[in-house]
C-alpha cells in the first residue's frame, strides 16, 4: 500500500501502460514538452520519446479523429483532451465515428480508443472551463463512460480501459488532481462497470460520482453526528449504469439523493432518478431528490462559484428535509 496524489496515480497508470504495450501512445495538447496542462504526463516524453508522447495542434476534432484512425489501425491510443469543454469540438468524431464504427462496419472494425479529460468546476477558471458534461457522453450508446473518484481508481481504471475493444472515456475531476490517497498495487485490475458502496448506511442512499464523492462523504459524516446513517454509492461508471448496486441500496434505505455537479435539467441525475422509479418504485418511501449545480454559467467569483456548485451543506440539508418530515 502506497500513498500518492490523484495526478501521480494517473501518471503511474500512463507509465505502466506505455511500458507494457508498445501499441500504446499518448496524444494531446501540451502532453509532451510542457508535461501536460495539469502535469499528468510530466517526464513521460523524456522516458518514452516523441514517437509515443505526441504534442498536437489546438484542434480537438483533428486529433480525436487521428486517435480513432490509429485505433482502427491496430494501435492503442490514449487521447488526452484538456477539459470537457474543449472536447465539444471533437464531439462529431465521437458520435459519428468512434461510437458507431463497429455497428457501421457490421462488426468488422472496432475502435479500442481511450480518451481522458478533466471535468468539473471549483478551480476559479470561469464559465468556459468548469462544466461537467460527462452525463452528455453517457447518453451515447457504443462507448463506456467512467469517472475515477479515488486515487486507486485513477491509478487502475486506465489499465482496464485499455483492455476494452470499444471506446472508453475517462473523466478526471479537476479538483481531485492534488488529492492524496492510498493505492494498493496488489489489488490489480479494477472492474470498470461496477458501482461501489464507499460508506454503508441505512437511512438514505447518496448516489454520486467523481468530484462529488468527497462532498457526499463529508455530508455523510455530518449526518452521522445527527444520527442519520447515509449510504454513499460511487457510481464509477456512468455508462453502463450499475443499477443492481443502486437498487439493492435503495431497497434497504428507501430513500435516494443523487448528487451531480452537472445542471439538473436533462441530466444524468435525471436518468438515475427515472431508472430508480422504473425499477425500484415500490422501494421508495420518499420522492428521489437531486443536488445539482445551479442552472447558470459557472461563475468566476469564488463565493459565487461555491454557491453554484453542490456543497456538503446542500446535501445535508436535502437529506434532513427528506427525513425530518417523518416526525
Amino acid at each position: 500500500m502506497t500513498t500518492m496524489t490523484y495526478r501521480e496515480a494517473i501518471r503511474q497508470g500512463l507509465r505502466e501502460a506505455l511500458h507494457d504495450d508498445p501499441r500504446v501512445f499518448l496524444m494531446g495538447e501540451d502532453v509532451g514538452r510542457y508535461g501536460g496542462a495539469f502535469a499528468c504526463s510530466r517526464g513521460l516524453l523524456e522516458e518514452f520519446g516523441p514517437e509515443r508522447i505526441r504534442d498536437t495542434p489546438l484542434s480537438e476534432d483533428a486529433f480525436m479523429g487521428l486517435g480513432i484512425g490509429a485505433a482502427l489501425g491496430g494501435m492503442r491510443p490514449i487521447v488526452e483532451v484538456m477539459t470537457v469543454n474543449f472536447s465539444l469540438l471533437s464531439l462529431d468524431q465521437v458520435v459519428n465515428n468512434a461510437a458507431i464504427l463497429r455497428h457501421m462496419s457490421g462488426g468488422q472494425f472496432s475502435v479500442p480508443l481511450v480518451v481522458r479529460m478533466t471535468t468539473g468546476g471549483g478551480r476559479r477558471v470561469a464559465s468556459q472551463h468548469s462544466n461537467s458534461f460527462e452525463g452528455w457522453y453517457a447518453h451515447i450508446p457504443g462507448i463506456t463512460v467512467v469517472a475515477p473518484a479515488t486515487v486507486h481508481d485513477a491509478r487502475f481504471m486506465l489499465q482496464s480501459a485499455l483492455k476494452e475493444p470499444d471506446p472508453v472515456f475517462i473523466f478526471e475531476h479537476i479538483m481531485l488532481l492534488p488529492e492524496q490517497g492510498a493505492v494498493d498495487e496488489s489489488l490489480g485490475p479494477v472492474d470498470l462497470r461496477r458501482a461501489v458502496v464507499r460508506r454503508p448506511g441505512k437511512e438514505v442512499t447518496l448516489i454520486t460520482h467523481g468530484g462529488s464523492l468527497g462532498k457526499c462523504l463529508t455530508a455523510a459524516r455530518t449526518l452521522a453526528e445527527q444520527g442519520i446513517e447515509a449510504e454513499v454509492i460511487d457510481l464509477r461508471c456512468l455508462r453502463p449504469l450499475d443499477m443492481a448496486t443502486i437498487l439493492e441500496s435503495v431497497a434497504k434505505t428507501h430513500r435516494a439523493v443523487i448528487v451531480d455537479e452537472a445542471w439538473r435539467s436533462g441530466s444524468h441525475a435525471a436518468e438515475i432518478s427515472a431508472r430508480i422509479m422504473e425499477e425500484g418504485f415500490y422501494s421508495l418511501d420518499a420522492p428521489v431528490a437531486r443536488v445539482c449545480s445551479a442552472e447558470v454559467p459557472i461563475p468566476y467569483a469564488p463565493q459565487m462559484e461555491d454557491a453554484a456548485l453542490p456543497q456538503p451543506t446542500d446535501i445535508v440539508r436535502t437529506v434532513q428535509e427528506m427525513i425530518s418530515s417523518h416526525g
Binding site: H254, F281, Y282, S283, L284, D285, A286
Partner: peptide, 12 residues
C-alpha cells in the same frame, strides 16, 4: 374526497 398521500414503499 382524497386518497391518502402515501409513499410507494408504504403502500406496498
Amino acid at each position: 374526497g382524497q386518497r391518502a398521500l402515501m409513499s410507494p414503499a408504504a403502500r406496498k
